[in-house]
Amino acid sequence: MKSIEKIWVRRQVPYAFVWRQQYVSIIRILDYWRDVGEWWRDEPELWFWRIQGQGLEVYELACNPQTHQWWMYHVYD
């Protein structure tokens, strides 16, 4: 997963971010889930958003709610 350069969040919900130097405005949240991963190896819980950008492209973002780090988990072409 690659870190997201910049992201804007309101009440823990993302509404825009910069990806590969492009500003992406989130027009729709398609899905949201949480995943504990391999907790026994001290992996942190991650929160995932499947969102649609202004160009109708679909991304999956991941966030560590403890550290507020954000990553690009998946990009749907």
Partner: peptide, 8 residues
């Protein structure tokens, strides 16, 4: 329970 697919 915040599972994938909940919205749908």
């Amino acid at each position: 329970n915040y599972l994938p697919g909940d919205r749908l």
